[in-house]
Amino acid sequence: MDRQKKPTGLPTALNQLGDPYPKLYFYRRIVQAKLFIDQHFAENIELFSIADEACYSKFHFIRKFKEIYRKTPHQYLISVRIENAMKLLASGIPVTAVCDAVGFEELSSFSRSFKRIIGINPSDYLLKQQILKKQITDSPLTVIPHCFAYQYGWLEK
């Protein structure tokens, strides 16, 4: 296996690990791309430019990203958008506002992606979460194991 030359002057923890560790610089670039998506998912991210910045061919970048995160960068971006959409929907924000807020340009593609990944429409998800939230607030003891509730004294009234 060829080893990437250890970069100098970069204050990263992995660089301090020394030589026995494989391709440290490379890991750092992939992780940075992932964290970039985590932070900027709502923007119009150009994934090819991330690959450029990571100094890898598009093909190599996508393959290594998928090895680590089990999704291509594009699939990962969509999944981060959907996850954040779930949080916003659960807090009661309307579907169209959520669609905008997480970076989808069209409601139809948002709904399609959401349904493909989660299994139900965003509007149904919002409704279900509102019902669940009400149940948790109104009668919390219906959502937890009573053995624990008993031990902590939560069953006493």
Partner: peptide, 18 residues
């Protein structure tokens, strides 16, 4: 985890104490 070096790098970046 799927890849310990990537996970280690990410958690360190987020301030997890190893």
């Amino acid at each position: 985890c799927t890849d310990i070096f990537a996970t280690y790098e990410e958690l360190q970046a987020k301030g997890v104490e190893f």
